[in-house]
Design a protein around this nucleic acid. Structure first.
Lengths: 168, 168
DNA sequence: TATTGTTATACTCTATAACTATA
DNA sequence: TATAGTTATAGAGTATAACAATA
């Protein structure tokens, strides 16, 4: 334990979960600051990206991909529609097909450049020999968690809560 | 772009920031569920760890290490004290030295075993050849961000807000 | 019966501003 | 003048329950 004379010791640096939390908060805060000039936040960006990649999708589906609850998608989509970035068209009286407007596509492209910059800066900021491992490692971690979390058939009526597994 | 027939396409898997956010939320949610039997959450665990590693430290210092605002430390520490996990002793009428109680030390050890399990499970869940890179990559990312964020003398009176840099 | 969109609501986390008392 | 602890408050983000309309 080399704790000889660090000013204030932080033993949490050895925990992947904490490192990822701290790192993601820093990155997303940075991204939020840079996206502010488009009047959107990172969550808006992610929704726009999903809609762009899946034209005609609906709120619930987007929420499922991003793990955002249906109820919380409502104000989010309403805001994007009010900003003229997303259009909604009733599909079958229950489902609404969403698409990016022309303005939405433009903003999606511009904001993507901003986010790409931020994410590339992150990769550039690690020592060169480790750079190639960044995405593979993070994707492997995410896949491993996805598998362990293993949504048991998308139970909305939270039956099995205390299974010991991750709750989301 | 191999987007041929994925059910719903998620183009965000290429962003380190998003992967870390999603991954950290899954891990910390898991950890919270497992720490629930000790009536603490992951943030409590992290505070206990810092106090244990730095006996005699104070609220502001812990907040500085964990990037938690002074104001938000107050209810946090009050709760830990009420649970009999942390003791406070006035140092100079302004500063209070904090230490773990016997109960706090016991719980810190037990909860550390729980967290170690979770974090180890995360590492084990990635393909074997990548496992050794997990911590180095995450620590390099965090160091890179720390350097870029480069707290400009801990300005509490938020003078330079729109410098373009990460806000925290 | 299950799903979509919705409302209402509550709880956690985070951020800011201001105050006091001490150094 | 700067710092430690505190209060109050506001804003995100997230969670649940319930409902109507529809499939």
């Amino acid at each position: 334990m080399p704790d000889s004379d660090c000013e204030t010791c932080d033993p949490l640096q050895a925990y992947p979960g904490y490192l990822m939390r701290r790192a993601s908060m820093a990155v997303l805060s940075d991204i939020n600051a840079r996206l502010a000039r488009f009047s959107i936040r990172h969550v808006d960006f992610s929704v726009l990206q999903i809609i762009q990649a899946n034209p005609g999708t609906n709120q619930s589906e987007v929420g499922r991909v991003l793990e955002i609850k249906r109820a919380n998608m409502v104000p989010l989509i309403a805001r994007l529609e009010k900003q003229g970035l997303v259009s909604r068209k009733p599909l079958d009286g229950r489902t609404q097909a969403m698409r990016l407007t022309a303005r939405g596509r433009t903003l999606c492209k511009k904001s993507q450049a901003v986010v790409d910059d931020c994410e590339q800066a992150l990769i550039d900021s690690v020592p060169e020999p480790l750079q190639a491992s960044v995405l593979p490692v993070l994707q492997a971690i995410w896949r491993g968690l996805e598998q362990r979390t293993a949504t048991p058939a998308d139970t909305e009526n939270g039956q099995e809560v205390n299974t010991g597994g991750p709750s989301r």
